[in-house]
């Protein structure tokens, strides 16, 4: 078990009130496993990644729960310990939008080598060699080292950012929408690269995306997020072939299929306001299988099958 999260909460203070971005999330990832985190914009996926890596903005009001990484409780670490031991060494990240992930005034190679120099006190020449190795692995020409960010194409930038994340060989990488801004063909290349790396290095991954089909391509396990909570969790096969939660079902139905004549369905309504969420189940205003109890009480957690978890009244006891 590389990562075990229990009841993680992350709330922000905003002008309109308290925003519950992450409202009690629990999940586990084994070594070498990829977890696909799927959900619409604003459901809290990015907040969750920030919560795991402790990159909290200044208006945080609540940050509690348990995060165990390779058996070590992260919440107990001081800021300094987290920075020197965990950041990048144990968990690295590929942020949403590689476009702006690179410092525009410093050469790309230097930035990528930074963690080696800072964390492992490596000498510059040695660090450069390591970087060039990684560049080769991800398919970047060695001249990339001396380039500036604005001189690279979108696809190349993405590879640089991935290379950067891999450099210290962390047991866990979080990738937030790593392919959203890329052409489909480049997307395919990057996905292939990630799959290879996952196999080669036995890397655990959290793959965050809104595209459920893309997620299923690489993920071993999948977690569907809605309104700050994980409403469905299971293996990819379970979630794709046997979706339990109405939201997951709708998500799948909204993906256009190449050889089907069915029109993609859409989900009416808008994502919930995380400052004042709906009463009871967050999804009930848009649910095509809504029941009376859904608007009154929070749904219970059910375990329909081994390793599968869903939060929905359809699978729970009506009377508590």
């Amino acid at each position: 078990m590389v990562l075990k999260i229990e009841e993680l909460h992350l709330h922000y203070v905003t002008m309109r009130g308290m925003l519950k971005a992450v409202d009690g999330i629990s999940l586990e990832i084994g070594s070498g496993e990829a977890l696909g985190l799927v959900g619409e914009s604003g459901c809290g996926k990015t907040s969750m990644s920030l919560g795991i890596t402790r990159l909290l903005p200044s208006n945080v009001s609540e940050y509690k729960g348990s995060i165990e990484l390779e058996g070590r409780e992260l919440m107990k670490l001081s800021k300094e310990e987290f920075r020197s031991d965990i950041n990048w060494k144990k968990i690295s990240m590929v942020f949403q939008g590689a476009m702006n992930s690179l410092n525009p005034v410093i050469r790309v190679g230097i930035q990528v080598a930074e963690p080696l120099v800072v964390h492992e006190k490596m000498r510059k020449q040695e660090a450069k060699e390591r970087v060039l190795e990684i560049f080769e692995r991800v398919g970047l020409p060695p001249e990339t080292f001396d380039r500036y960010a604005h001189e690279l194409s979108g696809g190349m930038k993405q590879r640089v950012v991935i290379a950067m994340a891999l450099l210290l060989n962390p047991p866990l990488i979080i990738l937030d929408e790593p392919t959203s801004a890329l052409d489909v063909s480049i997307q395919a290349q990057v996905m292939n690269l990630l799959k290879q790396l996952k196999k080669e290095r036995n890397m655990a991954m959290i793959f965050i995306t809104h595209d459920i089909a893309l997620s299923s391509d690489i993920s071993d396990k999948m977690a569907v997020m809605y309104g700050g909570r994980i409403v469905e969790f299971g293996t990819s096969e379970q979630v794709i072939n046997d979706p339990r939660h109405p939201y997951t079902q709708k998500l799948l139905a909204s993906t256009p299929l190449l050889r089907s004549y069915n029109e993609p369905e859409f989900i009416p309504g808008a994502p919930p306001d995380l400052v004042s969420p709906p009463t009871g189940c967050n999804y009930h205003p848009r649910c095509h299988m809504v029941m009376d109890v859904c608007s009154r009480k929070d749904p219970p957690t059910a375990y329909p099958e081994e390793g599968q978890r869903v939060e929905c009244w359809l699978y729970g006891e009506e009377n508590e």
Binding site: T53, L55, S84, P115, V118
Partner: peptide, 10 residues
Amino acid sequence: DFVNVARAKG
């Protein structure tokens, strides 16, 4: 963003 990345890099 890149400032956040820098922090994430520890």
